[in-house]
C-alpha cells in the first residue's frame, strides 16, 4: 500500500504538470480531515485524467458522485466609515461611524467525486466542481469520459439537483420520470400543495384517546 500524498502535495503536482489549472484546497475541519480539491471547469477533465493515469496515483475508481445544494446566504459585516456629522455647536465634524453592511453571497450547486485506486489500494481523493449559481448557470464538465462509473450517478445528480454535466453521453432523468420539472433534492424544493393532506390536530386526537381510556 502506497501512501497517498496530502492534498497540498496533490495540488502542487497538478499545478506543476498542468499549467493554468486552478486548484483550490477546501479544508475539512472535522476529525476525518478529508480535505478536498476544488477544480476549475476548463481543466477539470485534464486534472481527472492526470489523477487517473499518473503512475504513482492511479486513481482508477470513482466510487461516488453526489451533489450538494448551497443556498444563497447573507453575511453581515461591520465596517467603519468616515462621515460628516453635525457637531454639538452646529458645525459639521468628521467622525468615524460603524455601519453594518449586508452582503449577499450567491449559492451554487456542487458535484463531489470520491476517487480510489484499486491498483495502489489508496484513497479517497475528493474532487469538487461548482456551478456558477443555482438558477441559470448550472453547468459543470462531466467526468464520465474519464470514469465510466460516474455515468448513472451523474444522471442522478442531474435528476435530483439539476446539475447539468457537459459531455455526459446520456444525460436523462434516472429516478423521476421524463417531463418532471422540479429538482427534489434542492433545499428550496416544495412538494406540490395538493399532495399534502392537512394533518389532524394533535390536541383533538389526544382528547379522543383519553376519553376512550377513561370512560
Amino acid at each position: 500500500m502506497s501512501a497517498l500524498p496530502t492534498v497540498e502535495d496533490l495540488k502542487a503536482q497538478i499545478e506543476a504538470s498542468l499549467p493554468g489549472a486552478a486548484v483550490t484546497v477546501i479544508p475539512n475541519g472535522s476529525p476525518s480531515a478529508q480535505h478536498s480539491l476544488l477544480l476549475d471547469h476548463e481543466h477539470a477533465r485534464a486534472v481527472a485524467l492526470f489523477l487517473r493515469d499518473h503512475p504513482d496515483l492511479r486513481l482508477d475508481f470513482c466510487s461516488l458522485v453526489t451533489g450538494v445544494d448551497w443556498l444563497d446566504t447573507e453575511t453581515t459585516e461591520k465596517i467603519k466609515v468616515k462621515k460628516m456629522v453635525a457637531g454639538p455647536d452646529g458645525s459639521e465634524i468628521e467622525q468615524e461611524v460603524e455601519e453594518t453592511r449586508k452582503m449577499k453571497v450567491p449559492g451554487y450547486l456542487e458535484a463531489i467525486y470520491h476517487l480510489f485506486s484499486m491498483e495502489k489500494k489508496h484513497g479517497p481523493v475528493i474532487l469538487r466542481l461548482r456551478t456558477a449559481n443555482r438558477t441559470d448557470q448550472t453547468h459543470v464538465p462531466s467526468l464520465t469520459p474519464v470514469w465510466r462509473s460516474c455515468e448513472f450517478q451523474e444522471r442522478e445528480a442531474f435528476d435530483l439537483y439539476g446539475i447539468v454535466f457537459d459531455g455526459h453521453p446520456d444525460l436523462r432523468r434516472i429516478l423521476m420520470w421524463e417531463g418532471f420539472q422540479d429538482f427534489p433534492m434542492r433545499k428550496d424544493y416544495v412538494p406540490p400543495a395538493d399532495d399534502s393532506l392537512a394533518p389532524l390536530p394533535f390536541a383533538s386526537l389526544q382528547r379522543a384517546s383519553t376519553k376512550e381510556a377513561r370512560p
Binding site: E178, G179, F180, D182, P191, D195, L197, A198
Partner: peptide, 19 residues
Amino acid sequence: EFGAHGLEPAQNDEVFLNE
C-alpha cells in the same frame, strides 16, 4: 398521469376519503 410536479390528478375523488 406523470405530471410536471407530481401525479395528475393527485387523487381520485370518487374513491379517496379526503379531508
